[in-house]
């Protein structure tokens, strides 16, 4: 395996959780929900995955529980933001902090440790070797040997793009965000579309969290999502929710992640290299803001000419 395949391999691992959470957020973005609870959903899922895998000695149980845990938070979000009409921003922040507190408490309660649990009795996700993929030159070595959820994320990207843009469900979903009143008057409840979007988001964030704690590493540590949910939110905003765009941005962040690791071998302290994904987000935000302000200026110039 040469340097470049190693690099791309690492980038794919680094990108997967951001991609999955970002796809979940894309559904809610189109449905008109300002959902910032991805961070909390992922964290809760990451804990439940480790707990399930440890308790039942099976990664399948871990994966299922991760989705259940994440869906639990999604249901609370639905109850609050969709049915009680609470402020989405406040609810999201509260849920994220609740997830942080709950997982910290449960870590202490279930494993009797503070900070990190990394026992050898956690069963990680199995690596999958797709025989026909490994033989493709160039792409093969990069794409082969990842775990289940990485391939799941690829499938999820295609499926999300198809669902959102090519199906009746997707049309209604986008209408719920674009013009909820007219969707309601056509006989489809915008509220129900938001519920569906949040449920899908819960499932995808569950997978993202399980990947973090059973795939990327095999442990749970306090606040281990470390801002990945926020990065995925930034990715959604940057590309306006388009799943293909989210995938591209997630890969870029994965690359930034790996580039950080590479820089470490050049005597740069680990603390600085660990900043790269966050700095990359700031850079991406800069380009987005520049494009947005140019578009506004262009429109203003158009008005003047008329």
């Amino acid at each position: 395996m040469n340097l470049w395949t190693g690099l791309l391999n690492g980038a794919i691992s680094g990108a997967t959780s951001i991609l999955l959470a970002g796809l979940g957020g894309a559904f809610t973005y189109y449905a008109g929900v300002f959902n910032i609870a991805m961070e909390g959903m992922m964290l809760m899922a990451a804990f439940c995955a480790v707990w399930g895998s440890f308790t039942f000695s099976s990664w399948v149980a871990g994966l299922l529980l991760a989705v259940v845990g994440s869906l639990g938070l999604a249901l609370v979000f639905i109850l609050f933001a969709v049915f009680l009409d609470t402020d989405e921003f406040v609810t999201g922040i509260a849920l994220n902090l609740f997830a942080l507190g709950a997982t910290t408490y449960l870590l202490r309660q279930s494993f009797g440790v503070k900070g990190v649990y990394a026992g050898s009795d956690i069963e990680p996700l199995p690596a999958l070797t797709l025989p026909w993929v490994a033989e493709i030159p160039w792409i093969g070595p990069v794409m082969a040997g990842h775990n289940l959820i990485v391939y799941g994320a690829v499938v999820a990207t295609v499926a999300s793009a198809w669902l959102i843009f090519r199906t009746r469900f997707g049309l209604r979903l986008r209408a719920a965000g674009y013009n909820p009143a007219s969707l309601d008057s056509s006989g489809v409840s915008a509220r129900r579309m938001r519920v569906y979007a949040l449920l899908v988001c819960g499932v995808l964030c569950g997978l993202a969290g399980a990947f973090l704690s059973l795939g990327y590493v095999t442990l749970f540590s306090e606040n281990m999502t470390a801002g990945r949910g926020w990065i995925s939110l930034a990715a959604i905003i940057l590309v306006g929710g388009n799943p293909w765009g989210v995938a591209l941005i997630a890969l870029l962040f994965g690359l930034a992640d790996v580039a950080g690791l590479l820089l470490q071998s050049y005597q740069i302290p680990a603390q600085f290299t660990a900043m790269t994904p966050y700095l990359a987000t700031l850079v991406a935000l800069y380009f987005y803001a520049r494009r947005a302000s140019r578009a506004i200026r262009g429109r203003a110039a158009g008005f003047r000419d008329e």
Binding site: V76, F80, L84, V90, A94, L97, F98, G101, T104, Q109
Partner: peptide, 25 residues
């Protein structure tokens, strides 16, 4: 475990936000 303080705080925030909105409605 003293970490229950974090759980109580999280639940408190959710409960107060929910009761505020419910009361308003």
């Amino acid at each position: 475990p003293s970490e229950i303080a974090m759980v109580l705080q999280g639940v408190l925030v959710l409960a107060i936000v929910a009761s505020r909105e419910a009361l308003q409605q």
